[in-house]
Simulated assay, not measured.
Amino acid sequence: MAWNEPGNNDNDPWKNKGGKNQGPPDLDELLNDLGKKVTGIFGGKTSQGGSGKSFSSIGITILLIIGLIVYAFSGFYTIKEAERGIVLRFGQYSGTVEPGLRWKWTFIERIIPVDMQSTRDLPASGFMLTQDENVVRVDMQIQYRVVDARNYIFSVTDADQSLRESLDSALRYVVGHAKMDDILTSGREQIRQSVWQELEKIIEPYSLGLIIVDVNFKDARPPNEVKDAFDDAIAAQEDEIRFIREAEAYARGIEPRARGRVKRMEQEAIAYKEQTVLDAQGEVARFEKILPEYKAAPEVTRQRLYLATMERVYSNTSKVMVDVEGGNNMMYLPLDKIIGQQSSGRTTTQSYTPATQPTTSINTSPSTSTSGRSDRFNSGRN
């Protein structure tokens, strides 16, 4: 018969083991012993008849202790260096905490971290109507940063969305009061500054806790249907500006050179004038010195002037006059041609003798011989 069949069966393997009535440990007894030990640790007293009640109070105490520990550790949090923490106590603003390790009352306080140092981007674009009733697509982007965490969270429902709508309003207002040529070409910087000022004017009453760092005018273009015509117009305007700049550069380059030439010509004219005056004064002084001598000996003075003039004339030429012995003819040697032929290699040597036919002859007058003039010429030079 099996040990666990109904009836009087004492074949339980946990009993009478080793000759003694031994069985499996009783769960109630284990819990009772554990409760006594815990109660002893905390200084409590055990009761003989209330083991279940003692165990329940001990369990609750342990759970409370564990819950307090978990609650204490759950209250620690960290605020990053670039953030500020908004403290809400029962949903109401209680203050702002600085970066670092902090502690809060869990389930009572709530912390909202707000990034205060990062620069955020916000784009805006769309087709807009200009003052001269043209349609243009404008792309713009702003950069902003949070400066007041409380206003950023509580001033409006969504500060970023409010800023987006304000940017769109400011952009359309400025574009609507500007001409299309200014938007596409030379007025872009003015449009950017006007949008910046108008945006700050719009968001100032709302106290969004934001500051506009920069406004970037990214692009402005006409609709695709008329883009080619506007591109041609813009190219023509750019060519006009380029031609004007080139003309101004040419004028700046040529004008100083012209002024320099004018100054040089003026200086040369002044120098020529002074030289002419000085030459004339020198001739006058020379004439005044020669005049008394001419009055004293006219013939001698006339011959001296003639010889001095011939010396000055022949000193500037390469022709040499030769007095032919025994005749009344004088010939000259074309030394310039001879030197030129020798330098070019076409003539190596040429010899001339008194018997050679002269190239040019000069007939002397009977009253004055050639040799006499030559002697006087030589004596004058000496």
Rank of each mutant, 00 (worst) to 15 (best):
S169Y: 13
L171N: 07
I191Q: 02
D182I: 06
V175T: 07
K179S: 02
Q193N: 15
H177I: 14
M180G: 03
D168N: 15
S166I: 06
V174K: 00
L184A: 11
R172F: 07
G187Q: 00
L167H: 06
V174P: 03
G187A: 03
S166N: 11
Q190W: 07
V174W: 00
R188N: 03
R172N: 05
S194F: 02
K179N: 07
R192G: 12
I183A: 00
R188C: 10
L167D: 14
S166V: 12
L171R: 11
T185G: 03
A170C: 11
I191C: 09
E189V: 14
V175Q: 02
I191S: 04
I191R: 02
S169L: 09
G187Y: 00
G176F: 01
S169D: 11
T185L: 06
G187E: 03
S186K: 10
R188A: 12
S186G: 08
Q190Y: 02
S186V: 12
R188K: 15
M180T: 02
V175C: 04
D182H: 01
S169W: 13
D168T: 13
S166G: 09
K179F: 04
I191E: 11
A170W: 04
R188L: 13
S169A: 14
L171D: 14
L184R: 07
R188E: 13
K179I: 05
S194C: 02
S194E: 06
L171A: 05
D181M: 05
S166Q: 12
T185K: 03
L171Q: 09
E189M: 14
S194M: 01
M180Y: 08
S169N: 10
V175P: 04
L184D: 10
S186R: 13
D181E: 13
E165W: 15
D182T: 03
L171S: 02
A170D: 11
I191P: 06
S194G: 02
T185F: 01
I191L: 13
Q193W: 14
A178M: 12
D182Q: 08
L184H: 00
S186E: 15
D168G: 14
S194T: 00
Q193A: 11
D168P: 12
Q190G: 12
Q193I: 09
E189I: 10
I191K: 05
V175E: 04
G187H: 03
I191Y: 09
G176C: 03
S194Q: 01
S166F: 08
S186A: 09
E189Y: 14
Y173S: 15
L167S: 02
S194L: 00
D181T: 10
G176I: 02
S194H: 07
S166C: 14
Y173Q: 08
T185N: 14
G187R: 01
L167W: 07
Q190A: 14
D182F: 01
G187L: 08
D168M: 15
L167V: 13
I183D: 00
R192L: 08
Y173T: 11
D181I: 08
S194Y: 01
D182E: 09
S186T: 15
K179D: 04
D168R: 14
S169H: 09
D181G: 03
T185C: 04
L167K: 05
S166M: 10
S169R: 10
Q193R: 15
R188Y: 08
Y173A: 13
S194W: 03
G176S: 05
I191T: 09
A170H: 15
I191F: 11
D181C: 08
E165H: 09
A170L: 05
L167A: 08
R192H: 13
E165T: 12
V174N: 00
A178I: 00
Q193C: 01
I191A: 10
